[in-house]
Each structure stands twice: as C-alpha cells, then as structure tokens.
C-alpha cells in the first residue's frame, strides 16, 4: 500500500491521526504529515478508514 497526502487540501480535522496514529501526524498548524508512505500490514485498515473519513479528500491510497 502506498499513501499520499495533499497538504494544501487538509483542513486539520485530525481524523486521520485518530484512525492511524502510526502513519499520520500533524504539524504545528494541525496540517497532516506522513510518518510513512508505506504502512505495514497492521496499519492498513486504519489508513483505509482515515482515507474514508477525511473530510477534505486529502488522503490518496494505492493498493498494490
């Protein structure tokens, strides 16, 4: 799985951090930051959930 985030689109809802705290973080302004763009198997469900709830469609996933 490959993850990308679109920081200009992010509205700092924090939802992705709640869903997958080992993959997503927030900078000082609350904007999303990736901790890894290739999450391990244990984190993939959380990442899918994060992409599904992100209110700004700022998370893109490629399953491989």
């Amino acid at each position: 799985m490959h993850v990308e985030v679109d920081q200009p689109k992010c509205v700092a809802s924090g939802q992705c951090v709640l869903m997958a705290p080992d993959v997503f973080d927030q900078d000082d302004d609350g904007i999303v930051e990736l901790l890894t763009d290739r999450p391990g198997p244990g984190h993939r469900d959380g990442v899918r959930e994060a992409a599904a709830v992100c209110p700004a469609a700022a998370i893109r996933l490629e399953e491989e």
């Binding site: 700092a12 924090g14 302004d29 609350g30 904007i31």
Partner: peptide
C-alpha cells in the same frame, strides 16, 4: 476560509488535545 481557519487549527491538533 482556509486562510482564516488555518490561523486557529494548530491549538486543536490531536497532540494538543
């Protein structure tokens, strides 16, 4: 909207909460 909202998003980040 984004310009103004981003001025106050920092304090509501998950880590701060």
């Amino acid at each position: 909207h984004a310009r103004l909202r981003r001025m106050v998003t920092g304090p509501f980040a998950i880590r701060k909460m």
